[in-house]
């Protein structure tokens, strides 16, 4: 078994809000093609971890070594802001829980999907539009809506548009915050199917933060269970959910209402 080094190595990630603990000593590795689920209830610290990695929150301590395309490893938590923004634009994607946070609501769907390509320097209108149309098809948005504003889309369609916008520039790592939150159950199912096949087809690495165990069961290869800012259990998704060891994990799993 070839043992390449991980795409992302997080160690000792800690965030304190005064006396309150956001997250404490969080550590994990992530390899290409792997989806890591981070589950926990509100206040577990899972969103804090995501925000620290995305750069919207400044951590109190820890390192996050990311292996860039040229093979060099860089601590994303210590990057200069300019370099970090450039890296986020070119290499990472962030799918927000509320698609409005990840879209430009005032420009067309096609422009939303085309923008990352334009930001990377592409200058051929026809080809940019072609790429946008292909991606709309991939995320199952009717292509005749390419010139419509996202504000005319349903919630599920907006979320699929946000996913297309994030994936068009072929990122290596995608952070997802409750990607199916707020959507109807049937819409969620459709979205999860899509995410599942995209992750597999594109060999993406992803970190999916959610409180929904059904989501991680479908999407994640591995799981971190967090409680009060700390990781209490980690392992293969089906192993953690079918054979939970930690008291809190057992509680979490038992609380899920099965249809």
């Amino acid at each position: 078994m070839t043992d390449e080094s991980p795409l992302l190595s997080v160690r000792g990630l800690t965030k304190r809000y005064g006396a309150h603990l956001g997250c404490l000593d969080v550590g994990f590795d992530l390899w290409s093609g792997e989806v890591l689920g981070v589950v926990g209830e509100s206040g577990s610290g899972k969103t804090t971890v995501l925000n620290c990695l995305a750069g919207s929150v400044e951590p109190s301590g820890g390192t996050a070594l990311y292996q860039q395309r040229d093979g060099r490893r860089v601590d994303v938590l210590r990057m200069a802001e300019a370099a970090r923004r450039r890296m986020l634009r070119a290499d990472w994607g962030i799918v927000h829980q509320n698609p409005r946070d990840g879209l430009r609501m005032s420009v067309s769907a096609g422009a939303n999907v085309g923008e990352p390509l334009m930001a990377l320097g592409q200058r051929h209108y026809g080809r940019i539009r072609g790429a946008a149309l292909r991606w709309l098809e991939t995320v199952e948005i009717p292509v005749d809506r390419v010139d419509d504003l996202p504000s005319t889309f349903s919630g599920g369609m907006q979320q699929r548009l946000q996913i297309a916008r994030n994936l068009v520039a072929q990122p290596r790592l995608v952070l997802m915050d409750e990607p199916t939150g707020g959507l109807d159950v049937s819409v969620q199912a459709r979205l999860l199917d899509l995410l599942r096949s995209l992750v597999a087809d594109l060999g993406l690495a992803a970190i999916v933060v959610t409180h929904d165990l059904g989501v991680v069961r479908l999407l994640a290869h591995r799981l971190l269970v967090m409680r009060r800012g700390e990781i209490v259990e980690a392992g293969l998704t089906d192993q953690v959910l079918d054979d939970p060891h930690h008291e809190y994990t057992q509680l979490l799993v038992a609380s899920v209402i099965h249809p």
Binding site: G235, L236, D238, Q239, D242, D243, H245
Partner: peptide, 9 residues
Amino acid sequence: LRAAYGNYK
């Protein structure tokens, strides 16, 4: 069997 598959630890 589940242990052999890694489903149980």
